[in-house]
Amino acid sequence: MSETGTAKHETDGTRGKAARPRLWLAVLSLAAFALLIALGVWQIERRAWKLALIDRVEQRVHAAAQPIPSPAAWPTVSAANDEYGHVTVTGRFLHDRETLVQAVTEEGGGYWVLTPLQRDDGTQVLINRGFVPAERRDASTRQDGNPEGAVEITGLLRMTEPKGGFLRNNDPAHDRWYSRDVAAISAARSLHDVAPFFIDADAAPRAGGGPIGGLTVIRFPNNHLIYALTWFALAFMLAGKFFVTFGGGLFRRKRFVHEPAGGPDASARRTGSDAGTIVEPT
């Protein structure tokens, strides 16, 4: 094989090896672009869902109070359909079985006071009567605020909070509670026929320094638009880089100038055996 043929073969092989990584890079870039666009679209959909959720909750909170679901409906009570519903319930407090759950509120650090409410039909509902500071943890310091006899409670229906709080598990054996876990509290206090939810009592006045109600925080983070714009921005940045790397040559025009080998400027422009054809990018 001639030296020219050998050189051409080596050049073709080198070009083939260089093209393969560029092909894989192009495929990966296109896949990443599609993924980023999909993530952006997903965040737009999540935003629509979150706005609908906020609207539903606002309607429930400000609706007229309704009786709590009947015991027959308790198995079907869910966060999606019932949480934050404005409800009312009547019964008699079992103050000797109250449970204190650690809380941090706008009033400071302290405890939620969860007290079972005994209903006339024999069922029981846990009522979060509200917040007390640490110095009023002992029930003897707020006896005047514990009503006797039948009471009517109005508040928001809340779903149980199983297991515990952030990095802290409930410890029934030592009576340490970090979340309002209805099932665990019911078992620890020997309650029966208990609703699978609890009620956050409203801010009705409490006599004798009773718990402060109406401190339910209703907040749904809604940063989905920011996330969507971030994903879309990354996608278009990647698209720009892809265009520069792989698509720039598609729009580059080339001007071909042919000079006879014996032309007046041939000696000045000649760079090789094929110097008769000059390629100038424009």
Results as ranks from 00 to 15, higher is better:
254 K>N: 06
245 T>L: 13
229 L>F: 02
261 A>V: 05
27 V>R: 02
84 Y>P: 03
99 T>A: 03
246 F>D: 08
80 A>P: 01
46 R>A: 07
170 N>S: 10
61 V>Y: 04
162 P>W: 10
51 L>V: 13
94 L>K: 11
138 D>T: 03
200 D>E: 15
128 N>P: 11
1 M>C: 10
158 R>T: 09
20 R>F: 15
47 R>N: 12
202 D>N: 12
265 D>P: 00
74 W>I: 05
149 G>A: 00
201 A>I: 00
170 N>H: 09
27 V>M: 14
31 A>S: 10
19 A>F: 08
273 S>T: 05
51 L>F: 03
160 T>A: 15
97 R>K: 15
248 G>C: 02
171 D>S: 02
182 V>W: 06
202 D>H: 11
78 S>Y: 08
70 S>W: 00
104 V>H: 14
169 N>P: 04
152 E>D: 04
66 Q>M: 14
159 M>R: 13
30 L>E: 06
176 R>Q: 15
275 A>G: 15
204 A>S: 12
221 P>C: 02
140 S>V: 05
244 V>H: 14
158 R>S: 14
122 G>I: 10
85 G>Q: 08
258 H>L: 12
22 R>A: 10
249 G>M: 09
153 I>L: 01
208 G>L: 03
149 G>I: 01
88 T>E: 05
274 D>S: 12
137 R>A: 13
152 E>M: 08
164 G>L: 10
202 D>I: 03
82 D>W: 06
233 A>T: 15
204 A>W: 03
282 T>L: 09
33 F>C: 11
126 L>I: 15
11 T>W: 13
23 L>Y: 08
195 A>V: 07
251 F>H: 13
256 F>L: 14
73 A>V: 01
113 V>L: 11
237 M>L: 14
265 D>V: 04
158 R>Q: 15
51 L>N: 15
36 L>A: 07
204 A>T: 14
77 V>K: 09
189 R>Y: 07
11 T>K: 15
25 L>I: 05
218 I>V: 14
51 L>I: 13
207 A>L: 07
252 R>P: 00
246 F>P: 12
259 E>C: 07
87 V>S: 12
20 R>Y: 13
87 V>K: 08
21 P>E: 01
171 D>I: 05
139 A>T: 06
213 G>T: 04
47 R>L: 06
124 Q>L: 09
127 I>D: 05
44 I>K: 11
242 F>V: 10
53 L>W: 11
196 P>F: 06
184 A>L: 12
146 N>G: 02
213 G>M: 07
88 T>G: 11
242 F>Q: 05
227 Y>H: 11
277 T>E: 07
273 S>F: 04
280 E>F: 10
110 G>H: 04
188 A>G: 09
77 V>N: 06
159 M>W: 13
236 F>M: 15
276 G>W: 08
72 A>L: 05
122 G>T: 06
241 K>A: 15
149 G>V: 01
182 V>P: 12
4 T>V: 11
30 L>V: 15
197 F>I: 12
59 Q>E: 12
13 G>Y: 03
160 T>E: 14
9 H>R: 13
25 L>E: 06
240 G>H: 10
65 A>I: 10
280 E>C: 07
112 W>A: 00
47 R>C: 01
108 G>Y: 02
24 W>M: 09
134 A>K: 07
271 T>G: 02
90 T>A: 14
123 T>C: 14
211 P>C: 04
232 F>P: 03
